[in-house]
């Protein structure tokens, strides 16, 4: 019995040390054409991925994504990064997501999470909330809120990841 307990302790002790890093959960969301899409299909060929939660009614979110949009081409050229924008707009506004995204000429992959399923699975309290995934799909960094200039820190981290460097503190 003691051995079993010891074994369990070892197992759990081991577990806490090497527990898998979080990856994107597999959740059904919608494309901008309202087709079902499973987030497990999000990938970027071993390059980093930015996952950003936003909404059409959230001005800091739009500021952030518009600011990044100005530089996005350069970011992609330099690091191969992909930005996946998850709109948490519900039935009230989800029909406005595509017109807004195209109206702003965003080049992001945009999905809609109208009932907050992905938001809940990823523990997001408020928008904007940004996650950064390394080339293996591990969530290695996150940030809640947006202030002018936050995009520079984000891009520094993306550059490190694209070179295969670790960004953990």
């Amino acid at each position: 019995m003691k051995k079993v307990l010891f074994g369990l302790l070892v197992v759990f002790g081991f577990q806490t040390n090497t527990m898998a890093q979080s990856k994107l959960p597999a959740v059904e969301v919608k494309t901008m054409e309202f087709e079902s899409f499973n987030t497990s299909e999000i990938s970027n060929d071993g390059k980093p991925i930015i996952v950003n939660f936003w909404a059409t009614w959230c001005s800091p979110c739009k500021r952030e994504l518009n600011n990044i949009s100005d530089m996005y081409e350069d970011w992609v050229d330099e690091t191969g990064v992909k930005l996946v924008a998850i709109s948490i707009d519900d039935a009230r506004n989800m029909g406005k997501v595509a017109p807004y995204v195209n109206g702003q000429s965003w080049e992001y992959d945009v999905y809609i999470d109208p009932n907050g399923d992905l938001k809940r699975a990823m523990g997001v309290n408020n928008v904007p909330h940004t996650f950064l995934l390394d080339g293996k799909g591990n969530i290695v960094w996150q940030h809640n809120s947006y202030s002018e200039g936050d995009e520079y820190e984000l891009f520094e981290l993306v550059k490190k990841l694209s070179k295969g460097e670790s960004i953990s503190k």
Binding site: P60, C61, G123, P128, H143, N144, S145
Partner: peptide, 28 residues
């Protein structure tokens, strides 16, 4: 407010109206 990684602390004093409140980059 201060935020770092997924943590965020906000302190406020004063009168506030109901509704969607956006300050410091967050809407709630």
């Amino acid at each position: 407010g201060y935020n770092n990684q997924g943590n965020r602390i906000t302190l406020a004093y004063g009168r506030q109206r109901a509704g969607i409140f956006c300050v410091g980059g967050v809407c709630r």
